[in-house]
């Protein structure tokens, strides 16, 4: 199927075409780019929601009950669940479907597992594309689950409108991580595993951190307690997300906020492409090996070597 076929079939509700197109986006093919470009005008109808947080805090379990609650409210749901690729083999075991069994027989749900594939910035490129495809395909809700791991996460957060940051009691490290910048990307805070001891302490810590946010912020992230394993708190969570979505729509600065989001997307995409180009150039004709040798012998310094590499790239662009 070519890009035109895929595009029209996706708009006609063909799930297989959607699955094929997602593979193209993951593999960064020309067809994938053409489908994305063709479908982009049809995006913007879905609520797009990111679910992120440290490994094991219950993101998949929570995404599953969140999706079930959305279904109960009559909304269809597209889900992308990302798991890390092995740095050794580049392979991956994608196990998020295990926790989402309840959804797998429901025609109103489309669930896709994705490996992070490890290239710098490449993940946000792919997730942005796949979220857009699910949006254009007509899902009312698009959920993106990713493992929170610092910088990459900040970029991945630009793929969705509402980012839900999940933590759990006794994950004291998490609160540290949030101080380090993840807080800024969250529009809703979840304390999952609230059945465990320490949930109130975690809530206090989060509240204290949130109170440090810049004054005059139009949206203060609410804190929602959940017990995903028992399905508790799902309704409150959906309400909180809906409120953020409504805030975005009705805000005086709605246009500005949308421009800020797509601005970050453009930068992230450009960065990913530049990175790939630099890498391709560096590896071609042994340029990187040559520079590495010079730096290793201290005949030049890393900064100058990087400039040389960039100059080679620009030379190529001009020539």
């Amino acid at each position: 199927m070519d890009a035109t076929d895929l595009t029209s079939r996706i708009l006609g509700g063909d799930r297989r075409a959607l699955a094929l197109a997602i593979t193209h986006v993951e593999n960064n093919t020309e067809t994938g780019r053409a489908v994305q470009a063709g479908l982009y005008p049809r995006t913007g109808q879905a609520q797009t929601i990111g679910v992120t947080g440290s490994a094991g805090v219950g993101k998949s379990t929570l995404a599953s009950v969140l999706a079930a609650e959305q279904r109960a409210r009559g909304r269809t749901v597209g889900i992308v669940a990302v798991d890390p690729s092995s740095p050794f083999s580049q392979g991956a075991i994608l196990g998020d479907r295990i926790r989402m069994q309840a959804l797998t027989a429901d025609g109103g749900v489309f669930l896709r597992s994705m490996a992070s594939r490890g290239s710098l910035g490449g993940l946000s490129e792919t997730t942005t594309g796949v979220v857009d495809l699910l949006d254009a395909a007509g899902y009312d809700i698009v959920l993106l689950e990713t493992v929170g791991a610092g910088q990459d996460e900040v970029e991945v957060a630009t793929a969705t409108q509402t980012t839900v940051l999940v933590t759990a009691p006794a994950a004291g490290d998490d609160v540290q991580v949030m101080k380090a910048g993840l807080m800024e990307i969250a529009q809703v805070m979840v304390i999952n595993k609230s059945d465990l001891a320490g949930a109130d302490t975690t809530a206090q810590q989060l509240r204290a951190l949130l109170s440090l946010a810049p004054a005059g912020r139009a949206w203060i992230p609410p804190i929602v307690k959940t017990v995903a394993r028992a399905g508790d708190g799902a309704a409150n969570l959906v309400d909180a997300i809906d409120q953020h979505q409504q805030h975005m729509r009705e805000s005086d600065h709605a246009g500005d906020e949308r421009r800020a989001l797509v601005r970050s997307q453009i930068i992230a995409l450009a960065r990913a492409s530049l990175y790939r180009e630099a890498l391709t150039m560096a590896e071609r004709e042994g340029i990187l090996d040559g520079l590495a040798e010079q730096v290793a012998e201290r005949r030049t310094d890393p900064r100058t070597a990087a400039d040389t590499l960039l100059a080679a790239m620009r030379g190529e662009g001009a020539g």
């Binding site: 392979g91 991956a92 994608l94 196990g95 490996a115």
Partner: peptide, 20 residues
């Protein structure tokens, strides 16, 4: 083993119906 051979493995767990 498949992951270690560089493949992406979607693992769905036990008790899957043909439809799932």
């Amino acid at each position: 083993a498949l992951r270690d051979a560089g493949m992406e493995v979607i693992y769905t767990g036990i008790r899957q119906t043909p439809r799932m």
